[in-house]
Amino acid sequence: MKLNYYDGTDRVVTIIDQEIPFPDGRLIVSRTDTKGVLTHYNQSFIDMSGYSNEELMGQNHYILRHPDMPRAAFKDLWDTVQQGNKWHGYVKNLRKDGSYYWVYAVVIPNIRKGKIVGYTSVRRKPSRKKINEIIPLYAQMLAKEGESLCPTF
């Protein structure tokens, strides 16, 4: 499957219908610059992504974007954090091997001296009930959106 990104780049990925469970008691933490380029991440981020540390550093966060995620969710995320506010929601992430994992994500802007210098995203184990509620909702949103460019994050 070909994924198109907002910056004009694209890549071909293999999608596997296999869920990797979120590890108990962990947090996945990452930071990006204002463009969504990864600057810091913890071991749980590396482990769950399936990529190596070297492969991740400097990549745009959108490499985790799963094609089942509607654009509107990411637009809402970016609109919220760029205004200096906190965003939270359920996200299906794509692993390097094409499998996926669900997270409950909270993203906040890193504000230093009154200016947004980047974003921190912390992901934790989601409620299965909430995921089951959101799957059909995202599918509906996606169907309405049709095919077009994907945003980042």
Partner: peptide, 11 residues
Amino acid sequence: TEFMIDLMDTL
């Protein structure tokens, strides 16, 4: 420290 404050803010 700022990073940890940000992190606590997400919890």
